[in-house]
Design a binder for these strands. Structure first.
Lengths: 191, 191
DNA sequence: GACAGGTGAGAATGATGGTTCTCACGCCGC
DNA sequence: GCGGCGTGAGAACCATCATTCTCACCTGTC
């Protein structure tokens, strides 16, 4: 969570908006509500962000950093490189089992604005890309040869776990994904 | 596509709505538009379906049947049981590369109505469940022992491929997922 | 104390889109 | 022919927000 706040009012608004989007889902959060929670008049809100989409995109960037930090920290608690690469699934497992879980904010944001908000789409893509890069880097740490290919496969598993957990409420999604990831990783390490 | 139409006006409306939702995305299709395309007055539309959510849910049920049929047909063209189980990824691969592809309708519907429309949520869950059951059945056909566990893992890969293709536009998603699925399946068959 | 400028709080506006209502027309039995 | 009645077409209604506007208040200055 460090490095996310510089104390300025803009960052405060982004932090509040991000928390609301994350906690209640994108479509349940109105500008009025952000205004109330942040204690900022609407005029100033629109002075900082020309539209809700832009504010949403800024919140997604913040959430991206938070998520990557959390995953990285979790990975660093593992000594074994393979366990470290699989830590992302443990992170997901914990998250899915939290009471307020209601799906990936990025998926929600994408669904909400569709292709109508390019700024949101690019924030979502940036997050998915950085997530994939993080996974690939962790995979590379295992010493596997084709880290890019294996990283791409693990990234699919990460998004798949998220989709299954969101749509079906199946809290075992992360464990199934982890099992598949372990198989993929072990196989790649064998040759 | 057979067995989907009985010629009644209700099925006609569902077919038109489903095509629109599938082609343009859920959030881009209004009741007015369905009314126009189906050539049915709004009053009759609301006589058949009390709300858009109910119509959407009916469309999703139809789409569920279409998708499962298409995947099954595709699988039946393969002789090798393993190839048959992996055929779903070939199906996805073709789909992702089609020009008008813009993501899974079920994901779109879920994002649109969120938890606000239980009827939609249950339609989405039913689809994901039947998809998983189909995959598991195909996996069982390979003679693998723990077909349920492997089926669950492949289901995660299916949803993951869909998520990656939708959010990032990465058309290789299905191939990455297929590669991972093959590894999982081969490993399961080995012991 | 009086005034200008900025600021906060929330009301007004505008657009969208689901849902309901009106109304005119053609069809049916008499 | 004529009076109801179902039906089609779309206008009207209503709620929900994003976005903008108004206005009273406060503050600092002379």
């Amino acid at each position: 969570m460090d490095g996310l706040v510089d104390g300025g009012p803009r960052d405060h608004v982004v932090a509040v908006a991000d928390d609301l989007f994350f906690t209640h889902g994108v479509h349940a959060v109105t500008m009025q509500r952000i205004r109330s929670e942040a204690g900022v008049p609407l005029k100033k809100l629109y002075g900082m962000f020309p539209s809700k989409d832009v504010l949403l995109a800024a919140s997604l960037e913040r959430r991206d950093r938070i998520a990557l930090c959390a995953i990285t920290e979790r990975a660093e608690t593992c000594d074994d490189p393979v366990e470290r690469a699989l830590a992302v699934f443990d992170f997901l497992d914990d998250w899915f089992r939290q009471p307020g879980f209601h799906g990936c904010v990025f998926a929600g944001a994408f669904g909400e604005s569709g292709a109508a908000a390019p700024v949101v789409v690019s924030a979502v893509r940036a997050h998915k890309r950085s997530l994939r890069e993080l996974v690939t880097a962790l995979v590379a740490g295992t010493g596997v040869r084709n880290a890019d290919a294996v990283g791409a496969q693990l990234a699919v598993l990460v998004d798949g776990a998220m989709a299954v957990a969101t749509f079906t409420g199946d809290t075992d999604a992360a464990r199934n994904a982890r099992q598949a990831a372990r198989t993929v990783l072990d196989t790649a390490l064998r040759d």
